[in-house]
Amino acid sequence: MNEFEEMDFEKKKYIVFQLHDEEFAIPVSQVQGLEKLLKITRVPGAAPEVKGVINLRGVITPVIDLKICLDLPVSEFTESTRIILVNVNNSEVGLLVDDASDVLDIDMKNIEPSPDVIGGKEVAYVDGVYSIDKRLLLLLNLNRALNVDPVQ
């Protein structure tokens, strides 16, 4: 991030990714990296959303299927499936997403509260929505989505 943008604190960079047919965004500050799909080792007995663990350059990192967290229909892995590495509560976790396409500057002023229309389990995890060029981005609250935030 260069100094200019940091001065302009009204704008923040977000990573945009796809889950099923919806677009989500999380702040770049939470993201540690982006990886292509690696061989995932299943961990028996772990929570259903935990797909397993990967060897990320010598560090064992758990991988979580966000679609299960958000109650979205689960699909097979494809060529475009990516693992977004995020830092949650000081531990690194990989998030399985269908595609990670974009980095966008999001103007904080234009964020609207999430409309009730979305409904479902999803709504609890969305901090707000942001629309740009006929696209609707749902701003995801990671801590709540991954159920690590004590305040439900």
Partner: peptide, 23 residues
């Protein structure tokens, strides 16, 4: 270790990286 996120997994005490890079 499996890290903080995966604690108290039944009957699994940890993990290791094998020669081919798999866990």
């Amino acid at each position: 270790s499996l890290g903080d996120y995966l604690q108290n997994i039944f009957a699994i005490s940890g993990s290791t990286i094998l020669g081919d890079g798999e866990v």
